[in-house]
């Protein structure tokens, strides 16, 4: 019996490991390196109604134990994703989580409605937290009422469960989480990147053309762990955790914080084989920690002993 299979709204995962949106394109590049059917799921690159070129270059800058990016939601647009990318992905035995982005409410609704009908899309990830687009995006992710309203409207049109991707760039993450839960979200994914900047000491100007970028990588893991620890105790919906995951140990830490599955982002760029490596290492680690199944790890950092005993029985 597998120690890694996980059931979440819309998702029957053979393991809880998936590449994070924006760090894996639509899977084509990585499919040359390994069989994508090994993955628990794939969170594909954010899709908008119309094709987007994104921001000028340079779009990335390295930071200590992390990186800044300001890609700007470059993607081929809804029609191409539905007609080309998703059918191509259907050759793999892996559920797709489609990341939906936009700058206006109507855009989100249109994309969600259509993309959720693709046979291999098992859930949506509502991207209300991209820090790198000028209009829309971030406002949806920082004002609880707006986030709740958008979640509600997307839920009405989506054929599959909706996970909302939360921004860490807020004062009160629990308030945001509760708002989207009340809006009908089936789950949360967290966290998106933290807004940051680097300045070139020779030119005196920001390194990234967009000036600011989203910080990701191991540097942000403690922030994500803290936020998931807080949010998971206040909501009833499951959380897919992400932020700097680089090992099977990190996955366990996310589960202990309160996550039910984990996405790997930036580390795909450092080690393109990171996802299958973590999946291979997890069973032994789980057993060495005294668990039979990875689901027993969720929320261990805050659940009471009684609850844990009950949960394990």
């Amino acid at each position: 019996m597998s120690a890694l299979n996980i059931s979440l709204p819309g998702l029957e995962l053979k393991n809880p490991i998936m590449p994070a949106s924006g760090c894996f394109g639509f899977g084509r590049e990585y499919s040359d390196l390994y069989d994508l059917s090994q993955l628990g799921a794939i969170m594909i690159k954010a899709t908008t109604k119309d094709a987007r070129f994104g921001n000028p270059t340079p779009r990335v800058a390295e930071t200590s134990a992390g990186m800044l990016n300001a890609i700007g939601l470059q993607n081929p647009g809804l029609t191409k994703v539905v007609e080309e990318e998703l059918p191509w992905l259907s050759q793999f035995d892996v559920p797709i989580i489609a990341n939906v982005a936009g700058s206006m409410e109507e855009d989100y609704i249109e994309v969600a409605k259509e993309i959720s009908q693709a046979p291999n899309v098992h859930a949506l990830e509502l991207n209300i937290s991209c820090p790198n687009v000028k209009t829309g995006g971030i406002a949806f992710g920082t004002v609880p009422e707006i986030a709740q309203s958008l979640t509600k409207k997307v839920k009405e049109v989506s054929a599959v469960p909706v996970y909302v991707k939360l921004s860490p760039n807020v004062t009160n993450i629990v308030e945001m989480a509760k708002a989207v839960e009340q809006g009908g979200a089936d789950g949360l994914t967290m966290i998106n990147t933290l807004v940051g900047m680097r300045i070139d000491i020779k030119t005196g100007k920001p390194v990234i053309a967009n000036k600011t970028g989203g910080l990701s990588g191991p540097a942000i893991k403690p922030v994500a762990i803290r936020m998931i620890h807080e949010v998971s105790q206040q909501v009833a919906i499951p959380i897919i955790g992400m932020g700097g995951v680089e090992s099977a140990e990190d996955v366990i830490e996310y589960f202990y914080a309160g996550a039910s599955a984990v996405a790997v982002g930036t580390m795909n760029f450092v080690d393109p084989f990171i996802c299958p490596k973590i999946i291979a290492e997890l069973p032994e680690l789980i057993h060495s920690l005294g668990f039979d199944h990875i689901s027993e790890c969720t929320g261990r950092s805050w659940k009471t002993v009684e609850k844990l005993t009950h949960h394990r029985a």
């Binding site: 924006g22 760090c23 894996f24 394109g25 084509r28 590049e29 990585y30 390196l33 690159k45 094709a51 987007r52 070129f53 994104g54 270059t57 340079p58 779009r59 990335v60 800058a61 990186m67 990016n69 890609i71 470059q74 081929p76 647009g77 795909n268 760029f269 393109p272």
Partner: peptide
């Protein structure tokens, strides 16, 4: 030459416009 992330085409860090569509979405 361009600043790169993944180096294999997945992250879209190092894109440039095509000459036939210099301000559009092709890349």
């Amino acid at each position: 030459e361009e600043r790169m992330g993944c180096g294999i085409g997945a992250c879209f860090a190092c894109v440039c416009h095509t000459a036939e569509d210099p301000t559009g979405v092709s890349y």
